[in-house]
Amino acid sequence: MNLAYTLRLADDALIIGHRLSEWCGHGPILEQDIALTNTALDHLGRARSLCQYAAEQYNAATAEEKKNSFSSVAIQQLTEAGKQLTEDDIAYLRDGWDYRSLLLLEQPNIDWAFTVARAFYYDTFNYYFFSHLKNSNDTTLAAIAEKSLKEVTYHLRWSSEWVVRLGDGTDESHNRIQQAINELWQYTGEPFVMNDADNVAVSTGAGVNLADIQPLWTARIAEILQEATLTMPPAGSWMQQGGKEGRHTEHLGYILAEMQYMQRTYPGMEW
């Protein structure tokens, strides 16, 4: 069973999709509003596939496994009542400590430069990650990876182009993107931290060994930053982590409060 591993990927997709969707209607250029919404829809689509797969695995688990999967009272109640979980239960009924997403993704949009820098770091990671995950022996994860890779390839092109455009644009844009690149740097170590879920998934042949993709990520980031006339933050800087263990920044609580409000206020209804 790859429930923990699936959930982390689902949570990543859901949280970044949420953040990007906040731009819809507020972009700096109409064409970019459309482009960013497209990307948000790609992430949301992946989140749905992964949440469905997570629900399927949970429903097939033993009572003991179910008990240890989540801290969510609402999910425990559904389980006790003999209900099967759906993608929406997975997304809307877990609290922050059950979320396993990367700290990078819950960071606020702030401005176009932060949004681009966050996307750039994540899209680069995703590109290499899904390139490897498509060889997973978990056929569902492999299929999701295969489909995602096409989308992520486009995302990476989009965010890389914007890093270059802003870096090699005006003085103001250069300073803004450099600042965003610097400030978000502290969240770029966590994607490569191997935790229990990673180790189990790698040992069974379902997951990706993150050590394999870190050098690829670093090389690609360095190449684009150089083209953008930007400075790469120093190697060996202190890196934040905790998201993969359910310890988040203060931002996630507000995302979930907003995202889950309907399901929490009007529980158990069809929408």
Binding site: P28, I29, Q32, W112, R165, L166, G169, S173, R176
Partner: peptide
């Protein structure tokens, strides 16, 4: 969005 559009034009 002005600084973004300016950057795109300058680039």
């Amino acid at each position: 969005g002005k600084w973004v559009r300016d950057a795109a034009m300058a680039h």
